[in-house]
C-alpha cells in the first residue's frame, strides 16, 4: 500500500503515543546509531546502515538480572512493548537468528520479555555500502523480513505488513492500495539485485582448513578488541557478574570471544589463549559451528569489515580459506 507522507516519523509518533519504547537510528555528528528515542524528531532516516546493530533493542549491552540484598529482592523484566523502526534487512534477519539462540533450548526470559512484545518496522535498501554482502547469504535487502516493511521508490512510500502484529499496527494509518503501475514498480524493485560484494562459503573446505596456518596469517594484525563482535548483529556472547558485595545487582553485559578474558579459567588455563584461535573461533562460529542451529550466523552487514582497526575482512578470510 501507499502512504502519503513521512511514514517512519508518523509511525514513531504513533508508537510513542501507544506506549512503546522505540529504538530508531538517530544522528550523531556524521553518522547514525540505533538508540532509544523519545520523540520522532530524534530519529533520522538519512542513512544506509547505523553504526551499531538493532540488536540493542532486544539484547541490551547491560541489563540487571537480579537485585539482591541478603537474598533476591527483585527480578526485573521488561514490561513495555518495544519497537524497532528503520531496521535494514540484515539486522532484521539477525533478530530471527538471535531468537533461535535465546528462545530454543532453555528459554531466556529476559530476551523473551522483550521479543514477545516486539514490533519491527524495516526499510528496504536503495543502496549498498562498500562492504555489504547480504545478498550472497540469501538475504534480499529490498525485501526485509519484518512486521512492517517500508520501501521508498521514486518518491513513493510503499508500506506492507506480513504479520498479524504488523497488519494491526497499520490499521491506524491512512493507506491506499497501489495501482497496477505501482505494483509493477514495487515488484521490479524487489527483484533487482544491488551491486555488492559476495562471500563464497565452502563448508567442506572450512572443515579441512581448521588447523591450517592460514588463520595465524589472517589474525597477525588482529588487536583482540571487541569491535567486530559488539557491532555484529548476531553476536550474542555475554558475561554475568555481581556488582555490590552486601547488596547490589547481578548484571549481564555483552562480552566478546575476542577478549582473552572471555574464556580464561581461574586455574589460569585458557582454551583460546592465542588471538588467532579467537579470531578463528569467530569465523567458524559464523559459518560452521552454527550450522548445527541450521544457519550461518552472519547476515552480511559488513560492519566488522568497515570498523576493524586491523583491516581484517571476513569476506576475504572465508572466501579465500586454504
Amino acid at each position: 500500500m501507499i502512504y502519503e507522507g513521512e511514514f517512519l516519523k508518523d509511525a514513531i509518533s504513533k508508537l510513542l503515543a501507544d506506549g512503546y519504547r522505540v529504538f530508531a537510528p538517530s544522528r550523531v555528528g556524521d553518522f547514525h546509531v540505533f538508540r532509544e528515542i523519545s520523540s520522532a524528531e530524534e530519529a533520522d532516516f538519512n542513512y544506509i546502515l547505523p553504526r551499531n546493530s538493532a540488536k540493542v533493542a532486544v539484547f541490551p549491552q547491560n541489563e540487571i538480572l537480579i537485585e539482591y540484598g541478603d537474598w533476591i529482592e527483585r527480578v526485573p523484566m521488561e514490561e513495555k512493548r518495544i519497537a524497532i523502526v528503520g531496521v535494514r534487512a540484515c539486522d532484521a534477519k539477525a533478530i530471527k537468528l538471535l531468537d533461535k539462540h535465546f528462545l530454543e533450548g532453555f528459554v531466556d526470559p529476559y530476551y523473551k520479555s522483550r521479543r514477545e512484545k516486539l514490533l519491527t518496522i524495516a526499510i528496504a535498501c536503495n543502496n549498498a555500502l562498500i562492504n555489504c554482502f547480504c545478498q550472497s547469504l540469501g538475504i534480499n535487502p529490498r525485501k526485509p523480513e519484518a512486521d512492517v516493511v517500508v520501501s521508498e521508490i521514486d518518491g513513493r512510500v510503499f508500506v506492507s505488513a506480513d504479520t498479524e502484529i504488523g497488519k494491526s499496527f497499520l490499521q491506524g494509518f491512512n493507506l491506499r492500495n497501489e495501482n497496477e503501475e505501482e505494483l509493477e514498480i514495487k515488484k521490479r524493485f524487489e527483484s533487482e539485485e544491488l551491486k555488492m560484494r559476495e562471500i563464497r562459503v565452502d563448508v567442506e573446505k572450512l572443515k579441512k582448513s581448521f588447523d591450517s596456518p592460514y588463520w595465524k596469517e589472517v589474525a597477525i594484525n588482529c588487536k583482540s578488541c571487541g569491535v567486530c563482535t559488539y557491532l555484529c548483529p548476531t553476536c550474542f556472547c555475554f558475561d554475568i557478574y555481581d556488582e555490590g558485595e552486601k547488596r547490589g545487582v547481578r548484571i549481564r553485559t555483552w562480552d566478546s570471544c575476542q577478549f582473552p578474558l572471555h574464556t580464561l579459567e581461574s586455574s589460569s588455563h585458557n582454551p583460546r589463549a592465542e588471538k588467532w584461535q579467537r579470531l578463528r573461533n569467530r569465523f567458524y562460529d559464523k559459518f560452521y559451528y552454527t550450522l548445527r542451529k541450521g544457519n550461518y550466523y552472519c547476515v552480511g552487514c559488513g560492519r566488522c569489515i568497515d570498523f576493524c582497526p586491523a583491516g581484517i575482512d571476513i569476506v576475504n578470510a572465508i572466501s579465500e580459506v586454504r
Partner: peptide
C-alpha cells in the same frame, strides 16, 4: 570450562557448537 549462564547462552564454555554447560 569457564561458565557463566549454565544454559548454553553466554558462549563462554563453547567448544565448536557444543556448550559444555548444556
Amino acid at each position: 570450562r569457564r561458565m557463566k549462564c549454565g544454559l548454553g547462552k553466554c558462549g563462554k564454555c563453547r567448544i565448536e557448537s557444543y556448550y559444555v554447560c548444556k
